[in-house]
Design a protein around this nucleic acid. Structure first.
Lengths: 152, 152
DNA sequence: GCCAAAAGTTAGACAAGGCTAACAATCTGC
DNA sequence: GCAGATTGTTAGCCTTGTCTAACTTTTGGC
């Protein structure tokens, strides 16, 4: 359910080459980076289903700004990782796990976005930066962002 | 000098498949992701030179938490992109361009870190999150972070 | 109900960023 | 000054994420 769960390949990572706080930070960042794309897709798919009733590859491609074959290959990976289900030439559905991840991502995105706007950023830039930042915010930081966004 | 300059390959990107704000945001994130690793390396190399007098691949490998061959390959790319110079079996030097990038990165890192600590985050987590966040912060957001960190 | 357009898939290329295994060069301690 | 340890390189493999070109399936208008 957490991000780390997606990290199935290359599953050594922790304390293997540890002993250096910096190295651990970078490894954490690498893990986050591996999951970013999956999170973006799942979040977008949830949104498309909510708004359009279904998530078609062509719409995913448009929203993500990539080509249809790229989407196809990525969807294959998401299906392999148990986040979505799909049938040939049909639109995409989230699994239970995918829905949970989508919800979590949306929640994080919301908070980061509201936080940035509360800080004084214009909504455009806020949306843009939130897209990049949301994958690298720890629980602890997220809590502080939420508190700041909600303070009277 | 800015991040976008590193984006030499696949140099189409903007407004090509534009027309969707979301797509543009994602494309921006993709560009940022391409430069993250280079920025991390250059920043680390500058730091090693400053602290140890030289940047040896073995130390880079330790700090980054990757193996020596990975470092070798990445350094080749950095050299190809004009950020560093190197001779076989010798340690690494930054070019003028590399130094400029390192300085810019360090500056950004500093601000994000101070901002997070000012927000109330513990220094450990702050360092960790800053490592991930710093690459996804626009100039505008950085200015707001700096203002917040510096406010009396 | 057919046929063109739209959507989806498959095949194949390529670069980045990881790894291990095996080899080469450099450094160091005696 | 040489042998062993450390460091660096090379070769080769894998996955991810992107693309284009070519093909197949579905859909919608008449």
């Amino acid at each position: 359910m957490t991000n780390v769960d997606l990290q199935k390949t290359n599953a050594v990572e922790p304390e293997a080459r540890a002993g250096d706080a910096r190295a651990e930070a970078f490894q954490g960042v690498r893990v986050a980076r591996r999951n970013e794309l999956a999170e973006d897709y799942v979040e977008l798919i949830a949104e498309l289903i909510h708004n359009q009733g279904e998530a078609r590859p062509v719409d995913i491609a448009t929203k993500m700004g990539v080509t249809a074959p790229t989407v196809a290959k990525t969807l294959d990976r998401l299906a392999r990782d148990g986040l979505i289900t799909r049938a040939k030439y049909r639109s995409v559905f989230l699994t239970e796990e995918g829905r949970a991840l989508a919800k979590e991502c949306r929640h994080r995105h919301e908070i980061v976005l509201r936080f940035l706007i509360r800080l004084g950023l214009d909504p455009e830039t806020a949306e843009h930066d939130a897209e990049g930042i949301e994958h690298h915010v720890s629980e602890r930081t997220l809590a502080l962002f939420a508190a700041f966004a909600n303070r009277s």
